[in-house]
Structure formats: C-alpha cells, structure tokens
Amino acid sequence: MKVSTIPASFWRPLKASLLSASLLCCVFACNSAGDKLPVLGEKEVITRTVDGKTVTDSVAHQIPDFAFVDQYNDTVTAKTVAGKIYVADFFFTSCPTICPKMKVQLKRVYEKYKGNPDVMLLSHSIDPRHDSVSVLNEFAANLGVTGKQWLFLTGDRDKIYDIGQNSYMVTAQEDSSVPGGVVHSGAFILVDKDRHIRGIYDGTTAAGTDKLLNDIDRLLTEYKS
C-alpha cells in the first residue's frame, strides 16, 4: 500500500489566526441573515507613504499571488482567477479517506455553476510528487470534469503547503496509522474577486456543501448590485 509522506511542517497548527478565523466563521455562520458575507482572516497592517507622509493602514487578509500547474500543464496564477470567485480545496488522488467524499461534494458545485464564467474551482494536490500533470489529467477525466473551470493543481510541494497553511488557513495532520498517511482538513474555501476569504465549509458533508452553494449565490449577488 502506498503511504504518502507529508511533512509535519504542513500540519503545524495555525494558532491565533486560525482560531480567530474559525471564531469569526462561527459567529457569522449563525448570523446568515446578514446581507454580505464576512471577510475572514486577521487583518494585515501595512505601512505606506501618501503625499510624503507615512500612513499605517490595515487591510483584509488576501490570498497572495501563486504559480502552480494544472491538469493541462498550463500555469495557473492569481491572474487565472482575476475577476472570478473561486472555491479552493486540498486533496490527493490516492487518498482513500475523505478526499473522495470531498470530490463528490465539489462535483455538485461544479455541476451547479458549470459554464458560469464568474466561478472557478481550484483543487490543490498535497501529494504533488505522485500527482503529476498526467495523473491529475486522468483523475479529472475519470471524475467527469472537462474544460478549464475546475483546475487540479500540482507544483512545488513547499509552496502548496505554504499557501494552504498560511493563506487558505487549512489544517491537517500527519498520521501514519491511517490509510493514506494523513488526516487533513476537508475544508472548502470560498474566495472572492479580490482574493479575500469569504467562507470556510465542511467539504465532507452535503450540509456543509449546501451552505457553500448558498453562499456562492450570495457572493455572486454582491457583485450584481
């Protein structure tokens, strides 16, 4: 049996930022009657110079630029998702535990927004050494995914872990006792057109995904007005 070795560094807890994000998540999850979805994550303090004066400002947590390769061997960057909202998740093709569940659920999202130019899906492999472009290509095809709306990403492992841990706020932990070698977060992360995180959902359940579907509609409505 193949057991993926995922370095422990990826699974280091996120401490404060994650905690506050999940707290926010809970608070706002209860208050779903609000018009707008919250912006999640700790604010980042930036210092810049305006008219010769130094100004300190706080900005919302934003997904930084990235560069990965998709199942068609094309480079995918922040430019690829410019002007779109997208759902991100983390998985690996040989994962026998929660990944198939997540793919069943994410496929519902794919089917619902198929052909909508404002919505994309990015599934990052956390086992990029095994999940080459050709492996991801076959996996996507077998899942019944065509076109460029749902991209399966591979690339530099450290960079994938870094963006997962520090930007998308996903958690997971290595556990050699489970099939596949890793227990990881089954989260779907909803990102808006400014690359701000607007929601985190349990991608292993239909209920979590129902909430995501609902929130995607709400987020799309924000851009209509």
Partner: peptide, 15 residues
C-alpha cells in the same frame, strides 16, 4: 463507502 459510495454506486469512472 468513501470511494464506492454509501449505496455502492461507485464514483464516475474513478471507483
């Protein structure tokens, strides 16, 4: 069931 699904229906052309 993760792969073969709760009702044994499998998953697309994967499982």
């Amino acid at each position: 069931a993760n792969c073969h699904q709760p009702k044994g229906q499998g998953l697309a052309a994967l499982y």
